[in-house]
């Protein structure tokens, strides 16, 4: 009887996501051995991991800061909350193109502003060097997805009972101590959800890279999802694409749930 509560969700998720996954993965049998001798897979996996680690860390930090700010009683709080949400509301592919213009070496505003402020002496082709291209990609992603973290953590903070806050401030605890000894432990479940799903999204990053750098220069920003997409849709190599998908899904699952469990303060798996 109690299991009936799971039924609508189970039907939707397993029917719409589960079946296609099973069908795809079953097509990959016989191609799994090739995964181990695939040099491209190794290099794109490393790029993707580095990208996910750096950008998720930054997003969690900035997102937590923003959530704490937006939790304060300030004038026009609703407006500030809406503003904080805007990057998440903008279509990824279009903003990726926007970043491409912003980072352009000749007519981009990034160079123009840095030159005017004096931080740069000559224009940089941000997307044209392997190191700075990776940095630009992280910057664009952090900008875009910080609101995702902010919103979740803000909801988490709002669920912390107010009388607890008040009780502690009567005890004479300062705001910093209140945060670490009271809010943070209560915030852990929300942080775990945010970090788990941000990991999932970051490990599957595709649109942004595709438009911003196309994986270049010299493959330095090519990601796992792009490789899987190309194998399936451009190379029409369905068998190997299926094997790749299975490997990527499994690897990302272990990683995301591991990181999530660590943040929640539970044993991993």
């Amino acid at each position: 009887m109690r299991h009936l509560y799971l039924l609508p969700a189970a039907i939707l998720v397993f029917g719409i996501l589960g079946l296609p996954l099973v069908l795809t993965v079953s097509r990959g049998s016989g191609h799994f051995a090739a995964l181990f001798s695939d040099a491209t897979l190794g290099s794109v996996a490393l790029t993707t991991l580095a990208f996910a680690a750096v950008s998720v860390t930054l997003e969690m930090a900035i997102g937590l800061g923003f959530a704490l700010l937006l939790q304060q009683t300030i004038r026009a709080r609703g407006l500030f909350r809406a503003i904080a949400l805007i990057p998440w509301a903008l279509p990824t592919a279009v903003m990726a193109m926007s970043w491409r213009w912003i980072f352009n070496d000749v007519y981009g505003v990034a160079n123009d502003m840095l030159l005017k402020v004096g931080l740069l002496h000559e224009p940089i082709a941000w997307l044209g060097r392997p190191g700075t291209a990776f940095f630009a990609l992280v910057a664009a992603d952090v900008w875009k997805t910080t609101p995702f973290v902010t919103i979740i953590l803000l909801a988490g903070l709002q669920s912390v009972p107010r009388d607890l806050h008040e009780a502690m401030s009567v005890d004479g605890a300062g705001p910093v101590r209140r945060f670490f000894s009271l809010a943070l432990p209560l915030l852990r479940p929300a942080m775990a959800v945010a970090v788990t799903f941000r990991m999932i999204q970051a490990l599957g990053i595709f649109d942004l890279v595709w438009v911003l750098t196309g994986g270049g220069p010299a493959d330095s920003t090519r990601t796992l999802a792009q490789y899987v997409y190309e194998t399936l849709f451009r190379y029409l190599n369905l068998g190997y694409g299926a094997a790749l998908t299975a490997a990527v899904v499994l690897g990302a699952f272990l990683l995301a749930s591991g990181v999530g469990a660590a943040v929640r303060g539970k044993p991993v798996l």
Binding site: R100, F103, N104, D105, V106, Y107, P123, I124, A125, W126, L127, G128, T213, G216, P217
Partner: peptide, 16 residues
């Protein structure tokens, strides 16, 4: 050529 030519598609080079 500018360094950024390694980031150009059709439109970027045309704008310049």
């Amino acid at each position: 050529s500018p360094e950024g030519v390694t980031t150009y598609q059709e439109e970027e080079s045309r704008h310049v």
